[in-house]
Amino acid sequence: MGNRRHERIPAMDYRQYRRARRLVRECCNYDNGQCMVLDEGDGCVCVQSISHSLLCRWFRVAVLPLDHQLETALYHRLESRRCSECGALFLPGSNRAKYCRECAARMKRKHATERKRKQRRLCHALGAEKAL
Rank of each mutant, 00 (worst) to 15 (best):
L23A: 05
H111A: 12
Q69E: 15
L89D: 04
R106H: 14
I9N: 00
C56Q: 03
P65N: 07
C103R: 08
A62P: 02
A88P: 00
Y30E: 10
E40Y: 14
E7S: 09
Y99D: 07
A125L: 12
L54E: 00
E71M: 15
F59P: 03
E40S: 09
I50K: 11
M1S: 13
W58H: 15
F59L: 02
E114K: 15
S49T: 04
M12K: 03
G127I: 00
K130Q: 14
E129G: 03
V47F: 02
E129D: 11
A128G: 00
E114Q: 10
L132R: 14
V47W: 01
L54P: 01
K130H: 15
T72Y: 01
A131K: 14
E129Q: 15
S51T: 00
S51A: 08
L70G: 05
A88L: 11
G41M: 12
H111D: 13
K110I: 08
G33C: 09
Q48D: 04
S94N: 06
K108H: 15
F90T: 03
I50Q: 07
G41H: 11
R19G: 07
R5S: 04
R57T: 08
A125V: 13
E40A: 14
T72H: 03
L38D: 12
T72N: 04
R18T: 02
K116R: 14
S84G: 09
P65E: 10
R77Q: 14
R57N: 05
L74Q: 05
V63M: 09
R15T: 07
L126I: 03
Q48S: 05
Y99I: 05
E85T: 08
L126D: 10
S49W: 02
L122H: 11
A104D: 12
A104H: 10
R82T: 02
R82M: 03
R101D: 10
L23Y: 00
A62K: 08
E85L: 09
A125R: 14
E102D: 11
L55I: 03
Q16D: 05
G2K: 02
E7H: 07
Q119K: 13
V47T: 06
D31Y: 15
G87M: 06
R60N: 13
L122S: 15
Q48Y: 01
Q34G: 01
E79N: 02
L91H: 04
V37Q: 09
L91Y: 09
H111N: 12
C35E: 08
E102C: 09
C83F: 04
A20M: 08
Y14W: 07
Y17G: 01
H68G: 09
W58L: 05
Y30C: 08
R121H: 14
P92C: 03
S84I: 00
S94R: 02
L91P: 00
R5V: 14
C28D: 12
S49L: 01
M1V: 09
D13R: 01
R120A: 15
R117M: 13
K118G: 08
C28W: 08
